[in-house]
Computed example of a mutant assay.
Amino acid sequence: MNDHLIRSTGNAIARLTRGNGRVAIVNYHRVLAAPSPLPGVRAQHRRLHRQMELLARCFNVLPLRDALAAIDAGTVPPRAVCITFDDGYRSVHDLALPVLRRLKLPATVFVSSGYVNGHTMWNDSIVEAVETLPEQELDLAEFGLGVYSLRSMPERAATLGRLTEASKYLPPQERSRLVGRLQTPVGERAAEGLMLTPEMVVNLDRHGIEIGAHTVTHPILTSLDEAAAQQEISDSKRELEAIVGKEVALFAYPNGKVGKDFDARHVAMVRAAGFQAAFTTAVGAITRRHDRYQLPRSRPWDDTPFRFALRLLQWLARG
């Protein structure tokens, strides 16, 4: 699929959906300078570079708030796309920002405020442990998680996927205890320094990258009581506004599965905290019909520019 065909297909989709402007939002996390031996929700630098170049050539990339305003006004251009990054990894600053600046592409970074300035997210501690623990079986029965194998790289990859998914839904204190158990044999080394510093957050903002909130400690909101969930939501807004010195208007739900990771209570909390919009991880493009506090946003898994472009066009066609 060449650039002309991508653009003409996107224009045809826009004509067929006239009066119902659509915006596809892509969602990245950590960017790797080199491939990892283990799979995860990370965009390799080379893949990200290719995808950003395709977006610059073939799509209309909008700042997220501008896209929302265009939807309200009925002025969404064809082939409209927004770029977002979650969690607040320093690689967004060090690796993605130069690419975005060179291509003049806007983006939004949803930051978990509690990890700014030297702290490590729990999932990265698990990655480090799975990568570095000796070849053995990992018995986590005390956490109700069973036994995992680390005897080969494919088994480590499978263990990482299963363990990360299961850990998401542990109560926060139990999850912290699990991370401590995993770190005891290896210590916390490689995972240090993975997250943005306050200075990097400010620099992203000064270069036109909007800062959004992603809670304080990235919990699954449904695993918390209501008071704790409200604090995670409101404190993240307050803490990030103190760093950038301006309003933080957008929010992304951790993990983002509607009804499983957050529910109507948390939607109401986000609205009450003063956010203007909030984003899930549902597949598809946003339209005027969507609840402004449950807007879809998906991960681009594709290895080739062709598949990446095709996925975006499918999202725009589906709405």
Rank of each mutant, 00 (worst) to 15 (best):
A264W: 07
D225R: 15
T304A: 13
D87Y: 02
T304F: 07
G144Y: 02
L312G: 00
W315F: 09
E192F: 06
E135D: 15
T17C: 09
V26H: 05
I126E: 06
V81T: 07
T159Q: 06
S234N: 03
S236R: 03
K246M: 14
G245W: 07
V76R: 13
L68T: 09
T108A: 04
A24Q: 05
E165W: 11
P77L: 02
N2Y: 11
I6E: 07
A190D: 14
A129G: 02
L221S: 11
A129S: 10
K257P: 01
L32S: 04
P106C: 13
S149K: 00
I6T: 13
L133P: 05
V111E: 00
D66I: 08
E135T: 10
E199M: 06
G274Y: 00
P198W: 08
H29V: 11
Y115T: 09
E226P: 05
N20R: 05
S125H: 03
L145E: 02
H4C: 13
A69K: 11
D261Q: 03
D225I: 15
G146M: 13
W301G: 12
F275C: 11
V109C: 07
L194P: 03
A273R: 00
E142S: 12
G146T: 09
A141H: 12
L55Y: 06
L316R: 13
E241N: 02
P254I: 02
F251N: 08
R206F: 15
D72P: 07
F308Y: 12
W315P: 07
L62P: 12
D291S: 12
I233M: 01
D124K: 00
Y293M: 15
A268W: 00
R7W: 02
E155P: 15
L170A: 01
T197L: 14
A285E: 06
G19H: 06
G161W: 10
P78R: 03
L145R: 05
I211C: 14
F308Q: 06
T164A: 02
I209C: 14
G274D: 00
L32A: 10
P39F: 11
E239D: 12
T84R: 06
V99Y: 04
L95E: 02
A228P: 03
M200W: 12
C82A: 04
A14Q: 07
N11S: 02
R46M: 08
L48K: 02
L100N: 03
K246H: 14
D66L: 08
T222G: 09
V41Y: 13
A141M: 07
E142L: 12
R151L: 12
I243F: 04
H45P: 01
T222F: 10
A190F: 04
P296I: 01
V283G: 04
G74C: 03
M269S: 15
T84M: 00
I83G: 10
G319T: 03
E188Y: 02
F275L: 10
A129P: 13
T17R: 13
A249Q: 05
K168H: 14
R18H: 05
Y293I: 14
L178T: 10
A317K: 11
V111M: 06
